[in-house]
Write a protein that binds this DNA or RNA. Structure first.
Lengths: 357, 357
DNA sequence: ACCGTTTACTGTACCGGTATAGAAGGGAGT
DNA sequence: ACTCCCTTCTATACCGGTACAGTAAACGGT
């Protein structure tokens, strides 16, 4: 059951049948009707997508690549918001989204074997084989929240500027002993000795946020205590927060890598009986929907996730169009702004002398 | 840059190069090394996925179809949980997930044009063109939360039984005037006159849940007031809840289509100063993560979303395997149990005479 | 020396479409 | 009547792989 079947039935060439489906203006209406009728009668659905993809050189689907398990993609509210925005922006273009992990499980490597027209690399592990395959396939790519590369379009948010604003906010409130709660993908985890050790951060956002914090804290002469835990899961965040809060010289304020992590810190503070914001100020990052819901409402750095998704989708479709046209335009680098959102989790530092309860 | 390029370079046949990549045991190790080295040197990544898909007749991706905009897929916690479970279950098989909407936007119909090996139809619009195309493509399909069809495997939860348990629970607490808060995809919306009108429900879950409620309420002679709103969005849910609560003879208890909808009802009750559960009991459905977090904690009917995702993925991979083998095994129909979870949003009916505050 | 098996590789025939150039026929304009 | 153009349809050459059957050489056993 192929184009040829229909062609034979109607008595026209295969090409004409192809046109009847794919380029309606290339043949007369009556003939097209006859062809479609014959197709309907024979139970022919339309051109085979796989064959069409081969002949045309395009698939109609784009990949979105995650480092972590895809479970993360559907658990984290920031990730889901981002994906949703992409989906919405892509819908009118007719492109579908294919979800890929950069974790390669043995010999099965979707990044190498799934047909697609381009891909978005989101919070991706740099060294992974999957990313390497995508590059070598010469697919149009867009980096999101990655270190920008010259020749590849990227979409980022002003992580460093946002982190600076967060630190500035705490300094303005009088805090001088400040805890940093960071998350990483590789160990070691725990209290961090040397903050300038390159191993302290992996991932673009982690690094930029840390740098932003230090931009303000170091010149101000603040005392910095940092902990680093595995990823942004709640349990891990609680573990990291406990490292910072369950000690005699605990900080009076916390800068957290993300709102998800900050949420863990709020829980631990509550369990230890530390009043937030009375005895401890907490600042998150992202403006996760969670941030507005938790009590106390979380002061955070907002990034516009929907805008990021839209920008990423638009940049990718542009890159695909350029690749198809063979136009080697320079890669575009988008940086979206961040904004300090003050809620109830931050307050002026309590009087010295009473800073330990 | 194709297999042939490498073949010419090394001086072997194209087929041997193909085997070097796809069937390593079909040629000697030294030759394979030479071929891979040559490929590396020439910058050849591996067999073109589109061509391979055509020749092999399989793609390595499965579709997941939604009626609503994909935004919904990433907003609703039940949907994201379901997708996450599918992703996790599918990962080791090497299949990727392609997201499709059943909304057809003009001439672009991903369901017709995207290569895939099978598809999951989840909360799908029955009459949509996309669904029709999938059937006609003779793709292995699995229905999830749809009316089961004889010849197509399906995964469902015991919606009706769960709804019965919810209604029974309220009756046991002494409630006799009970509001139903339903959601639909098509109008009309508002208070529902005839509950047995077929137009009152669209979608399998809606129907089963309504039937389950009525199974208990009607024999018990309870007074039923029903409202029906557009989808499960918060604003719509609030609108529907207001219809039921902002009236003199308001019900003493509410049965809601989902926890998301129940959440809207809780908000409206709070705004109207109606104490939950003192003056109003509310029961949701799904055991959305939200249900445990809201105050008061929501009594609900739990369905195991993760199990549903796993079952759906497993059923689909089985169906694909069967289709490939040409084994026409009978379609499997899975029904997962539901369970009443009692939290703080339900209580015995207040004394008559004081049931209006 | 003979025969049955493996192992290692090759040749051919597809998979099911689309691109592109060109041919046949039918007005319109001069 | 001639040219030019436009519409409509066709012929051929790909797109880049895999399946399957077959051949030639090496190997082991008697």
């Amino acid at each position: 059951m192929t184009l040829q079947t229909i062609a034979d039935r109607v008595g026209v060439s295969r090409m004409t049948v192809s046109n009847a489906f794919s380029k309606p203006d290339q043949l007369s209406a009556p003939l097209r009707e006859r062809i479609l009728a014959a197709a309907q009668e024979l139970g022919y659905v339309g051109p085979d997508p796989a064959a069409r993809a081969l002949a045309k050189g395009s698939t109609g689907a784009v990949g979105v690549v995650f480092t972590h398990s895809l479970r993360f993609a559907f658990t984290d509210l920031v990730a889901t918001g981002f994906l949703g925005a992409i989906a919405e922006e892509l819908a009118p273009t007719g492109l579908s989204i294919t979800l890929l992990t950069s974790a390669d499980e043995g010999d099965i490597v979707p990044a190498r074997d799934v047909p697609m027209d381009g891909a978005l690399l989101y919070s991706c592990d740099w060294s992974s084989r999957a990313v390497d395959f995508l590059h070598r396939r010469r697919l149009p790519l867009v980096y999101v929240d990655q270190d920008p590369a010259d020749d590849i379009p990227s979409v980022n948010v002003d992580d460093r500027g946002g982190a600076r604003a967060a630190a500035r906010h705490l300094l303005d409130l009088g805090h001088r002993r400040i805890g940093l709660l960071m998350s990483g993908t590789y160990g070691p985890y725990g209290l961090v000795g040397d903050l300038h050790d390159a191993g302290v951060v992996d991932g673009h956002s982690s690094r930029q946020r840390l740098l932003g914090w230090l931009d303000e804290l170091v010149p101000a002469g603040a005392e910095v205590i940092a902990a680093r835990q595995d990823g942004t899961g709640l349990e891990q965040a609680r573990w990291g927060a406990r490292l910072l809060l369950d000690r005699p010289d605990r900080p009076t304020a916390l800068l957290c890598f993300s709102d998800a992590v900050a949420y863990g810190a709020l829980q631990v503070a509550a369990e230890l009986g530390i009043d937030v914001p009375g005895r401890l100020s907490v600042v998150g990052f992202d403006d996760n929907p969670l941030a507005a819901q938790v009590r106390p409402g979380l002061t955070t750095i907002r990034q516009d996730i929907a805008a990021k998704g839209k920008a990423a989708a638009a940049t990718l479709t542009a890159a695909i169009a350029r690749a198809k046209a063979g136009t080697p335009a320079p890669a575009e680098h988008v940086v979206l702004p961040t904004e300090l959102v003050i809620r109830e989790s931050t307050a002026p530092r309590a009087e010295p002398g009473e800073h330990l309860r």
